[in-house]
Amino acid sequence: MKSEFTQPIGKISNINGQCIPLIGNDIDTDRIIPARFLKCVNFDSLGESVFADDRKKLKGKHPFDLKENKNASILVVNSNFGCGSSREHAPQALLRWGIKAIIGESFADIFYSNCIAIGIPCFTLTKELIQKIQKHKDDKFLFLEIDLKKSLAKSKDLNFNLEIKESSRKMFLSGEWDATSTLLENESLIENKCNDLPYLEFNNYLL
């Protein structure tokens, strides 16, 4: 785990970093951060516990423990990554370990929205390309430069397009991925919507 942690903020248009491959389909959020670490009232200390059980089992051989991955920041995963529990603790733990972007075959819906909400862009690629990156050993590791404006990634010898939801891409480029203030701008529309809801009048308990 990196010593200094800085929360992402504002516009995100370029991510340059070393890739860390993590092989496996359907890696769930219980594995990313086991439930016992959810007993906390802030996210601060989650970084060191990311993949706690998987790492313990592999006794230093888990990608997150390998010396060569110490400074990695782009996680490369397979399909349905982050399935299961909605715990934001999972991407928060990855972020605090040092992950700044994730490239995968596919992501679970809630995990994906959690990543976007905390400033981790998630990109998709074909299975073949993912496997190529995961196996890339030329320099022991792969250093990627991601350009979000062009949805492009390049390394010394690789060049490929990355897929990302257009709404997410726009949010990162404009810096509006931290949604609260954007949502609050529509305060009067929210009030109107609330007053228009048919169940307002007969939901006598809540209101």
Binding site: S86, E88, I110, S113, N114, A117, A179, T182, L183, L184
Partner: peptide
């Protein structure tokens, strides 16, 4: 009905809305 993460819980508390596709 759907599950959300903590940042979206914050958004619902603050605005009673969320951003979603």
């Amino acid at each position: 009905a759907f599950g959300i993460g903590t940042s979206q819980v914050r958004d619902v508390l603050a605005t009673q809305t969320i951003a979603m596709n």
